[in-house]
């Protein structure tokens, strides 16, 4: 292996690692706030990328129907509850978010062919189609069992993952697809060249990570999320409801996943089920951070990206094996160095 190849592999590893880092942050966020190990995180990557592909080829993406369907179900559930409790004050916003907005989108997409929009508009539509699925899934699948044990939440999480993968096959078909590159420019670093798309991925991920940092450190809603993660009872006594924190964390996880999917759609061919593997690699990073530390999770995910990239050079057949085997020494090290905490009943 000469220096040029090493550089190329490093560039590849960092690009992938940046995406894994984003997903790892989302997994840590969702777990600390809601105790849900969010297996469907990767589905948002696939949904984001494939929705963008659909839009670009002028088709109405299947995610729109999912958005409409989930929105209707939530509206019905909330409406029946509100009628029984005789409290209709909150219904207008529920209907607006879950019914009116998806219907408006459906109307827009049926009138105008999405292929005619410019790329930023297509990206924006993708985001508003896929990101709301996050809080909707929380509302339907996790909020009713928010007090259940981590194991029960994990099982439901797996069920959601399987459902979303199946729906992905139904919506997008079995073929893989990718979008055209966002930018053709490339930069020369010594002898190697850095494609603009890779740089775009790295820079956008960094920007998103910095934005998340500001959200958690500087805004009261970010602090409220951290507070819920630290002390649920304390947070509730401040009026920070667990369901609001859950919705918010799932919305952020949806945003991070969809955004990652859009970013990598020009550099990898994605299938309806590709998200799972990508999400799992983010999960390895999150595990390195003990599902608790954001910086360690991000660095761990970056390491996963690099490890994957170099092992694909030396032992490409064992690429995935090597990456996932990393979890064993990490777990061993974590179980030896951290004090075991019993889960509260």
């Amino acid at each position: 292996m000469d220096f040029q190849i090493a550089l190329l592999l490093a560039q590849d590893g960092i690009t992938n690692g940046a995406i894994y880092a984003l997903l790892a942050l989302a997994l840590v966020l969702v777990f600390t706030v809601t105790r849900v190990i969010f297996i469907p995180q990767g589905e948002f990557v696939a949904y984001g990328a494939l929705t963008l592909v659909s839009l670009q080829s002028g088709k109405v993406p299947g995610t729109l129907w999912l958005l409409l369907g989930l929105g209707m179900v939530i509206t019905l559930v909330d409406l029946s509850r509100a009628v029984r409790a005789r409290k209709l004050r909150r219904m207008p916003s529920v209907i607006l978010f879950n019914c009116v907005m998806p219907l408006l989108l459906a109307g827009l997409l049926s009138v105008v062919s999405p292929a005619t929009f410019s790329l930023p508009v297509q990206v924006f539509i993708t985001l508003i189609l896929v990101v709301p699925l996050g809080p909707m899934i929380y509302r339907l699948a996790f909020q009713p069992i928010a007090e259940a044990s981590v194991l029960v939440l994990l099982i439901v999480s797996v069920a959601v993952h399987v459902t979303l993968t199946g729906l992905g096959l139904f919506f997008f078909g079995a073929e893989g697809s990718r979008t055209p590159v966002f930018t053709e420019t490339s930069f020369a670093i010594g002898e190697a060249s850095l494609p603009g798309q890779a740089l775009l991925v790295i820079v956008s991920s960094l920007i998103l990570i910095v934005a998340l940092y500001f959200l958690f450190e500087r805004t009261i809603y970010g602090k409220a999320l951290r507070a819920t993660a630290m002390n649920r009872t304390g947070a509730r006594l401040m009026g920070i409801s667990s369901s609001m924190a859950g919705m918010l964390s799932f919305a952020l996880a949806g945003l991070i996943g969809t955004f990652s999917g859009i970013l990598i759609s020009p550099i990898t061919t994605l299938y309806y089920d590709s998200g799972f593997l990508i999400g799992l690699k983010g999960f390895v990073g999150a595990i390195i951070g003990g599902l608790a530390s954001y910086p360690v999770a991000a660095i761990g995910a970056l390491l996963v990206g690099l490890l994957e990239s170099y092992s694909s050079f030396w032992a490409s057949a064992f690429k995935e094996v090597i990456v996932f085997t990393l979890i064993i020494p990490v777990l061993l090290w974590r179980s030896l160095t951290t004090r075991h905490v019993e889960e509260e009943p």
């Binding site: 009261i220 602090k223 409220a224 951290r226 507070a227 630290m230 002390n231 009872t233 304390g234 947070a235 006594l237 401040m238 920070i240």
Partner: peptide
């Protein structure tokens, strides 16, 4: 039930 890993100021703000 304080938020241990947050500053006194952030605890108050919350």
């Amino acid at each position: 039930e304080l938020f241990g890993e947050m500053s006194v100021r952030d605890n108050l703000l919350l």
